[in-house]
């Protein structure tokens, strides 16, 4: 089977979620990549070095600059003439593009796969991760999104992919990119951080969040997350949210501070290797999944922990 993986990239770098996607694709067969964007020469070269990559299709053009789904999906459909499966990471951009591709190809998409069980058989979470469904597709072409935390990342070096230019002007189909506000942070990105410190509503306000959670995270070199309650209350921006409707994370260590552990939050972090919970309510559901629990007042515990680190 020939697979085509859409490469998500930012500032000349291939994103980690794409590497996990390459691993998933390699379980299906030959891996080809699609790099689309403006000035993507360096990205294409980096992509060709990813272990296990056969061919890198490069589409250069201003239309592709911001991963507008209207343009990228049309391009993917053209390439799908000689590929059997399309894979994209289950990120905001991947989830924007893949369904459009699926509709244009008239196939049913298989979303957020956790593992590859066979040629057309996959597992995927249903009911907010409370059950795992094994699904088998009978489509001629597969359209798949891949949950990045469920696959090992392919090595960035060691591949000898061949770069091939795709000549397609592209058409943004009535969509124009206006601008973006990306929160700048020196901290590691949530979906690829080794350690994450997350805060919940118990922090009471935004100032507490910054003065309690962030120093601890910085000491640990950790990414900062939050529960939906903390985001809804406006303590931190939306992109901090970990959970079913936020980011799905699986760090080595996940530290939940003042988070009770609603099932929707657990859905986003329960694949973490070690979960540490700090909460004053000893009956909080978070303690049922935590490897290490500490019952007590976070306003005392966290500063003490930070100072001792």
């Amino acid at each position: 089977m020939k697979t085509l993986v859409w490469v998500e990239h930012d500032a000349g770098q291939v994103k980690d979620a794409t590497l996990a996607c390459v691993t998933a694709a390699s379980k299906l067969g030959e891996v080809h990549l699609l790099v689309a964007g403006e000035g993507v020469g360096p990205v294409a070269e980096a992509a060709a070095k990813i272990a296990g990559v056969g061919k890198v299709h490069v589409a250069e053009g201003a239309t592709y600059a911001y991963a507008l789904p209207e343009a990228v999906a049309t391009l993917v459909v053209e390439l799908m003439g000689h590929h059997d499966a399309f894979l994209a990471p289950a990120t905001a951009n991947g989830k924007n593009i893949a369904p459009r591709v699926a509709a244009l190809l008239d196939v049913m998409q298989i979303s957020e796969i956790l593992s590859v069980e066979g040629d057309a058989t996959f597992t995927r979470p249903i009911y907010a991760g409370n059950a795992i469904a094994t699904v088998k597709s009978s489509e001629a072409k597969l359209v798949i999104t891949v949950r990045g935390t469920s696959f090992e990342k392919a090595a960035r070096e060691g591949g000898t992919g061949e770069i091939e230019a795709v000549s397609s002007a592209g058409d943004a189909g009535g969509a124009t990119f206006i601008g973006q506000e990306i929160s700048k942070s020196e901290r590691p990105e949530l979906t690829s951080a080794k350690i994450i410190v997350s805060g919940g509503r118990a922090l009471q306000n935004s100032e507490n969040f910054h003065s309690i959670i962030e120093p601890l995270a910085d000491k640990l070199g950790a990414g900062v997350g939050a529960s939906r309650a903390a985001v809804d209350a406006g303590y931190v921006p939306n992109d901090y949210q970990v959970g079913q409707t936020g980011k799905i994370v699986a760090p080595e260590v996940y530290m939940a501070v003042g988070i009770s552990g609603a099932i929707q939050h657990l859905a986003g972090m329960k694949d973490s290797k070690t979960i540490i919970a700090i909460n004053k309510d000893e009956d909080a559901p978070i303690f049922q999944v935590a490897d290490i629990g500490l019952v007590g007042d976070l306003f005392k515990i966290v500063p003490e922990l930070t100072s001792k680190l």
Binding site: P125, S137, A290, K308
Partner: peptide, 24 residues
């Protein structure tokens, strides 16, 4: 439907771990 659900299983359960008494 062109996708068949072969089976539905329960995800691996996490078990509650230990509790520690203090920061140290």
């Amino acid at each position: 439907p062109r996708i068949e659900t072969v089976k539905v299983s329960e995800p691996p359960k996490r078990v509650a771990g230990i509790k520690v008494a203090d920061v140290d």
